[in-house]
C-alpha cells in the first residue's frame, strides 16, 4: 500500500499527464483512501486546468523584409481570399448600381421639379427622414423603392439592391 510520500512522487506525473499505466491503480487507490492527497491532487489539477483556460493568441505571420523580421496578421487562406474577392466584387457592383441609381434619382427629381437634396432625403410624407440621416444606405434603398419603377421592375430593383447591400454589409 502506498503512503503519502510515495504518492507525491507520482503526483507530478499525474498532473503532467504522464502517469504510467502500471502506477495508475496504486495511485487511484491512494486517492480513494486519503482525503488529504485527494484534495491536493484535485486542487492542483484544477489549477493546471485554469491555466489552460487562458486563451492562446491568434497566429501571427512572420516574414522578412531585408534584415528585419516583420510580424503581422496571418495572411488569408485561399478560400478566404476567394470569399473576400467575391465580396469585393459585390461591393463594387453595388457602388456602380448606387451611382447609377443616384443619377437616375437626380434626373427624376429635376424632371418633377424637386431639388436633388430632397430626393436624397426621400419623400417626407413617408417618414424616412430620420432613418436616412443615420443610415444612408438604408435610406437610399427606401428611396429607390419609392421612386424607381413600378410593379415587377421595382420589386426586382429592390430585391437586387437588398442582395447587394447585405453582401456589402457582411
Amino acid at each position: 500500500m502506498m503512503n503519502c510520500q510515495e504518492f507525491e512522487t507520482l503526483l507530478s506525473d499525474a498532473l503532467g499527464g504522464e502517469l504510467a499505466e502500471r502506477d495508475r491503480p496504486v495511485f487511484e487507490t491512494h486517492l480513494a483512501e486519503c482525503e488529504r492527497c485527494r484534495l491536493e491532487y484535485e486542487t492542483s489539477r484544477a489549477a493546471v486546468q485554469s491555466m489552460r483556460e487562458l486563451p492562446g493568441p491568434a497566429r501571427v505571420a512572420v516574414s522578412r523584409e531585408g534584415d528585419r523580421l516583420v510580424i503581422g496578421p496571418v495572411s488569408q487562406s485561399g478560400a478566404q481570399l476567394r470569399q473576400s474577392f467575391t465580396q469585393n466584387l459585390l461591393r463594387y457592383a453595388a457602388s456602380v448600381l448606387i451611382a447609377f441609381a443616384a443619377g437616375y434619382l437626380v434626373h427624376a427629381a429635376r424632371s418633377s421639379g424637386e431639388s436633388p437634396e430632397m430626393v436624397a432625403q426621400g419623400p417626407k410624407e413617408h417618414g424616412h427622414a430620420e432613418t436616412q440621416l443615420e443610415r444612408p444606405r438604408e435610406s437610399l434603398r427606401v428611396t429607390l423603392a419609392h421612386t424607381c419603377g413600378r410593379g415587377r421592375s421595382r420589386a426586382a430593383i429592390v430585391s437586387c439592391m437588398s442582395t447587394l447591400f447585405s453582401a456589402s454589409e457582411r
Binding site: 507525491e8 507530478s12 498532473l15 503532467g16 486542487t43 484544477a46 489549477a47
Partner: peptide, 20 residues
Amino acid sequence: VKTHYLRAVRVVRDRLQRRW
C-alpha cells in the same frame, strides 16, 4: 524537472485558491 513542475503548480494553485 518534476520537482520544479510540482512546486510551480502548487504556487499557482495557492494563488488561485484564494479566489476560489
